[in-house]
C-alpha cells in the first residue's frame, strides 16, 4: 500500500483530488440555484411587476412607475388592511407575550402535572390555521356558539356577536390567533427560565430579595433575548396572517377583516390588479425584512467572532 501511493505520480492523483474538492459545491449548487431563482429572482420579478401596468397577466409593456404604490396607499381596502394589521399585530404580540411569560413563570414553580399541562398549552401550534379558524368561527358564531350557549343556560341578555360586527370582527381573529400561538411563546419563555443560572438567584435570595423582586429585577430582565425572539416570530406570523382570516371571516363582514396578505390575494387573483397586488407584496416583504434582517444580523454576527 505504502509503496503504491508514494510512487504514484502526482499527475494521476490530482484530477481525483480536484473532483473531490469540487464535489461539495456541486452538491450545494442545485439548492442554492433554486433559492436564488425561486426566492430572489422571484422577488425581483415581483418588484418589476409592481412598477408595471399588469392586470390579469404579467405585462411588462406598460410602465407606470410608482403609480401602483400611489393607488395602493389611496385605496380604502389597503388602509383597512394596514389598520387591521396594526391592531392585530399589537394585540397578538402583547397578549401572546404576556400569557406566554405568565404561564411559563407559573409552570416553573415546580408544578405537579407540568408534564401534563405543557402539551395541552402547546398542541394548537400543531394545527392548521384552517382548523383553528373552523373551530373558532363556529364557537364564536352567535347562532350556535358561545352566545347561544349562554342564552340556553338562562343568561337571556348575553350577547357576543363580534364576529358579525365590522368594528369588532378583527378582535375575534386575535382571540383565535392568541389561542394558537401563546403556548408556543410559553415554551420559549420556559426554556429561557430553565436556562437562568441558579447561582444568580441564590445570590439574590441571600441579598434578601423577595420572590417578586427576583422575578421583576433579575429573571424577567434576563428574558430579553426571548422577548426579542418571540417578537420577531410573532410579528412575522402576523404580517403573513392569511389562512386564519380566510377560514374565520374571509375578510368579512364586508372588508372589515382584510389584512395585507388577504389584500394581495384578492387584488391579484380576484380583481385582476396584478400590479397593485405585486406592490402590496413588496410592502409586506419590506415590513418583514425591517424586522428580520436586523435580528438575523445580530444573531449571526454576534455568534461569528
Amino acid at each position: 500500500m505504502a509503496e503504491l501511493t508514494t510512487t504514484a505520480p502526482r499527475a494521476v492523483t490530482n484530477p481525483r483530488a480536484t473532483l473531490q474538492d469540487l464535489l461539495p459545491k456541486i452538491v450545494l449548487a442545485p439548492s442554492f440555484a433554486l433559492i436564488l431563482i425561486f426566492v430572489y429572482g422571484f422577488i425581483i420579478f415581483t418588484a418589476f411587476l409592481s412598477f408595471s401596468g399588469s392586470k390579469l397577466l404579467p405585462d411588462f409593456s406598460t410602465w407606470v412607475g410608482l403609480n401602483n404604490y400611489v393607488r395602493l396607499f389611496n385605496h380604502p381596502n389597503w388602509i383597512t388592511a394596514l389598520k387591521n394589521l396594526a391592531i392585530f399585530s399589537v394585540l397578538y404580540i402583547v397578549i401572546c407575550s404576556f400569557i406566554g411569560l405568565a404561564l411559563a413563570i407559573f409552570l416553573d414553580q415546580k408544578i405537579r402535572g407540568e408534564g401534563f399541562l405543557r402539551p395541552i398549552y402547546l398542541y394548537p401550534m400543531a394545527l392548521s390555521f384552517i382548523v383553528t379558524g373552523v373551530a373558532w368561527k363556529w364557537f364564536l358564531d352567535p347562532g350556535i356558539g358561545l352566545e347561544h350557549v349562554m342564552q340556553s343556560w338562562g343568561w337571556e341578555s348575553f350577547s357576543f356577536r363580534w364576529i358579525k360586527e365590522g368594528q369588532m370582527a378583527i378582535y375575534t381573529i386575535v382571540i383565535a390567533a392568541v389561542w394558537q400561538s401563546s403556548g408556543f411563546v410559553m415554551a420559549m419563555f420556559l426554556a429561557g427560565l430553565r436556562g437562568v443560572d441558579n447561582e444568580i438567584i441564590k445570590a439574590a435570595q441571600i441579598d434578601g430579595a423577595s420572590t417578586l423582586t427576583i422575578y421583576r429585577r433579575i429573571i424577567i430582565p434576563l428574558m430579553r433575548p426571548v422577548f426579542l425572539s418571540a417578537f420577531v416570530v410573532l410579528a412575522h406570523l402576523a404580517i403573513k396572517s392569511y389562512d386564519l382570516v380566510v377560514a374565520m371571516t374571509d375578510g368579512g363582514p364586508g372588508t372589515a377583516t382584510w389584512t395585507p396578505a388577504l389584500f394581495m390575494q384578492k387584488f391579484t387573483f380576484g380583481r385582476n390588479e396584478m400590479g397593485m397586488g405585486a406592490a402590496s407584496a413588496i410592502i409586506m416583504m419590506m415590513m418583514i425584512f425591517a424586522i428580520i434582517v436586523p435580528y438575523l444580523y445580530s444573531e449571526l454576527g454576534g455568534k461569528k467572532k
Binding site: 501511493t5 508514494t6 502526482r10 483530488a17
Partner: peptide, 16 residues
C-alpha cells in the same frame, strides 16, 4: 516530501 516524494497536493488518505 515524505521519503523523497512530494505529497503536497495529495489527498490525506494517499499520503501514507
Amino acid at each position: 516530501a515524505i521519503n523523497g516524494n512530494s505529497v503536497a497536493g495529495l489527498h490525506p488518505s494517499k499520503r501514507d
